[in-house]
């Protein structure tokens, strides 16, 4: 029993990272129908930005940990958002304006991801970076279940991020514009909605939360390396699709589902089986529900 609760908490924490990244995938996809394959690497860049700003604030300025953290969060989110917007601005938008085939934009995104990874590798080297401890980790034990303040914070952040984005998409004008674009990309500019500005907002949100995920990830698993974003990014993308890509709830649920599957696999099987079983489960879900859990099957009109 305790074991199960423990695993659920671990799954929630692990799933939080997937969920936060998957939200970014799904936002961009919902608006542009673009699979932004650079998103996992944006997450990695976020973790590195968090690393440098945390080190700077802690050691150079000698600030106390909690102030450093309080400053680190906005700095990381803003800088990562800028990275995302830059990609949009210099790589995706010119192609979109030329009316290039959707898949060419996808390839460009893949290439941007490769550049981010290897530029990082070339500049900072292959050595892993140890993330400094910002706040002291408290371990709580209740009836045999142990959890830390950090774990709780990660899970809470993921839920808050979801609630914020859900509110944003369903209740605000920008969110309505985003949904309108996903329905009809051609009619929306005719109604006076500035398409490019909405797209920039989408990238700001998606990349900002990827940056937040990077910070939290670096705090929870304080070892950074340039390829850390690639695998998590691909998996978060798969989570977004299993949830039904383009739907915020889907991305959130998909992220936690993938996290749960992975943690449960590791709990009962050798850890090398993790990818195998996780992906097989996802394959089965997609075979059973081809457009994901929340995805709406597009009816072909003839």
């Amino acid at each position: 029993m305790e074991n199960l609760v423990q695993n659920i908490i671990n799954a929630l924490q692990w799933g939080s990272f997937y969920a936060l990244i998957a939200l970014g995938y799904t936002l961009v996809y919902g608006v542009l129908t673009l699979i932004n394959f650079a998103h996992g690497d944006v997450f990695m860049v976020g973790a590195y930005i968090a690393f440098f700003s945390a080190t700077f604030l802690l050691t150079t300025l000698g600030l106390p940990g909690w102030i450093a953290l309080a400053l680190c969060i906005p700095v990381t989110m803003i800088l990562t958002a800028m990275v995302g917007v830059t990609l949009e601005r210099i790589a995706y938008r010119p192609l979109r304006n030329k009316g290039a085939h959707r898949l060419y934009v996808v390839i460009t995104a893949l290439m941007c991801g490769l550049i981010l990874e290897h530029a990082n590798l070339a500049i900072f080297g292959a050595s892993r970076k140890a993330f400094p401890q910002l706040i002291a980790e408290h371990v709580y034990t209740i009836g045999g279940v142990t959890f830390t303040n950090l774990k709780i914070a990660v899970i809470a952040t993921a839920f808050l991020a979801f609630l914020f984005l859900h509110w944003m998409v369903t209740r605000t004008r920008v969110g309505m514009a985003m949904r309108a674009i996903s329905y009809d990309k051609f009619a929306v500019p005719l109604l006076g909605i500035p398409l490019d500005r909405i797209i920039v907002v989408t990238f700001i949100l998606g990349s900002g939360f990827a940056g937040l995920a990077g910070l939290l990830f670096a705090m929870s698993y304080p070892v950074l390396e340039p390829y850390m974003g690639a695998l998590i990014g691909w998996k978060a993308f798969i989570a977004a699709v299993v949830g039904g890509i383009g739907d915020i709830r889907g991305a959130f649920l998909g992220g936690f589902l993938l996290g749960a599957v992975e943690i449960m696999v590791v709990a009962f099987f050798p850890s090398t089986f993790r990818d195998l079983i996780a992906f097989t489960v996802l394959l089965l879900i997609l075979t059973w529900k081809p457009t994901g859990l929340f995805g709406i099957a597009k009816t072909t009109k003839i």
Binding site: Y29, T33, I35, W234, F237, I238, V241, V242, I245, P270, T272, F273, D275, L276, F279, T280, L282, L283, L286, T287, P290, T291, G292, G295
Partner: peptide, 27 residues
């Protein structure tokens, strides 16, 4: 799976197949 689905969802299936195949051999 391609009988029932196409586009991005099928892209994921191909991606997952790649992971599955490699994972099987690694194990």
């Amino acid at each position: 799976p391609s009988y029932k689905t196409r586009g991005d969802y099928l892209a994921i299936i191909t991606l997952a197949s790649n992971y599955i195949i490699i994972s099987v051999i690694e194990n």
